[in-house]
Amino acid sequence: MTTPITTPFSAQSTAAEVVDGIDLTGRRAIVTGGASGIGVETARALAGAGAEVTLAVRDLAAGERTESDIIAATGNKQVHVAPLDLADRASVAAFVAAWDGPLHILVNNAGMMASPEMRTPEGWELQFATNHLGHFGLTTGLHHALAAAGGARVVSVSSSAHLRSPVVFEDIHFRERAYEPWSAYGQSKTANVLFAVEATRRWADDGITANSLMPGAIRTNLQRHITDEDLERMRRQSGSGSFTWKTPEQGASTSVLVATSPLLEGVGGRYFEDCAEAGPNQPGTRSGVAAYALDPEAATRLWELSIDTLAA
């Protein structure tokens, strides 16, 4: 049994506080969804510590505004913008083909939450396609760049919503069962955790580790499909009877911790929340990690299924 990782930081810590004193000069990072929400603050903290940061975004205009803002705030001119639509295989392939040189930090941050039923041209359910398959194709496509870096880290941004659903291998894309937005989101977030488990197992010999995390509740554009009634229900279901919003700066802190902390050197396949490794989920609560999300057999099955899906 491994000892859970603890840090001096907490739910109230900001990304800037977590990275304070860490020098990322010479390191190269990619943040998907880097032009909105916690992606902006993740990128800002990495750039503030000296990293060269690429914002991988769908909205190039928003990306360019964020790029200018981060350069002005940090004085780091090595901030770039590149187009990436995770639901489009051609876009992912183009991004991978355009990347040159090593990659030290990959933050798989972009996502969509609880959307109405939508599908890709291939017929894939869009939340699973975006949140998992797109990031899977991106990360595996960048494997050589990660291996070339030596000690590279992959950050897989999950959610406590993974507690809502395991990956339903028999019907991932809701072809047989009725579509339910939160179940679809939940299984995609479970897939994010399983991906980190299997990536670490497969790539540890290349010096690559991957960890997943729950950033916390942050009011951002991610919730554009969620009503006030949904939010009230989430508050009631939060387990403790309270529901505390984090600022985007606080919400980005666990991502930045996983990406940069010396305490995680060589550590992979684990799930973090509030700047510490999470324990097992306890029934009736919305914290901790579900056993099915760390299941190595499910992780291997998902990896192989993902390869087959993207190759079809």
Rank of each mutant, 00 (worst) to 15 (best):
D100I: 08
P283V: 03
R270Q: 12
R201F: 01
K246A: 03
E17I: 09
G269N: 07
L133D: 04
V167I: 14
S261V: 00
S160I: 14
A298F: 08
A312V: 07
V31S: 10
A72T: 12
I38Y: 05
A276V: 12
E170A: 15
M234E: 13
A152N: 05
G141V: 02
D100E: 14
G111H: 12
V81W: 06
A98G: 13
G137Y: 08
Y185L: 02
P116M: 06
T7E: 00
E180S: 13
T260K: 03
F174Q: 07
W124N: 11
T6S: 15
A204L: 15
S242E: 15
L60D: 10
T7Q: 00
H132Y: 14
E232Q: 15
L231H: 09
R233N: 12
G34A: 06
F169W: 01
S253V: 03
A11N: 09
A15H: 05
G207P: 00
F128E: 09
N192I: 01
W124D: 13
A152L: 05
S188T: 11
T227I: 02
V197E: 08
C275L: 10
G151R: 10
E170M: 00
Q12S: 15
A129L: 01
T6A: 13
V79S: 04
A29Y: 03
R270L: 06
D171H: 03
A62M: 03
Q282N: 09
G207V: 05
D20M: 01
A196W: 09
R164N: 14
V168D: 14
R224E: 05
A11Q: 12
G123A: 07
A11I: 10
I38E: 05
T227F: 03
V19P: 06
V258D: 10
L142P: 11
G63M: 00
E125M: 08
E265R: 14
V258T: 08
G216A: 05
Y292I: 07
D23K: 10
Q250L: 00
Q282W: 01
F9D: 05
G101K: 02
M1L: 14
P296S: 07
T190A: 12
T6Y: 03
P102F: 00
V197Y: 04
G251L: 11
V154Y: 06
S242I: 13
E176T: 15
Q78M: 02
S255W: 08
R119H: 12
L194P: 03
R58L: 00
A293P: 07
A62C: 11
T227H: 09
V53A: 09
V155W: 01
L138Y: 04
G241M: 10
E125C: 01
A29R: 00
Y292S: 09
Q12N: 14
P215I: 02
L84P: 00
F169D: 09
A98Y: 02
A291V: 09
A252M: 06
S287I: 13
R235D: 11
E277A: 05
A90S: 15
A149F: 12
Q12H: 14
N221H: 14
V107A: 03
S159T: 05
Y179V: 02
G288E: 06
W124G: 03
I71N: 07
V154L: 07
E64H: 12
A210Y: 10
D171F: 11
P262M: 04
E122R: 14
T285Y: 07
S158P: 04
V81S: 11
A97Q: 15
D230M: 04
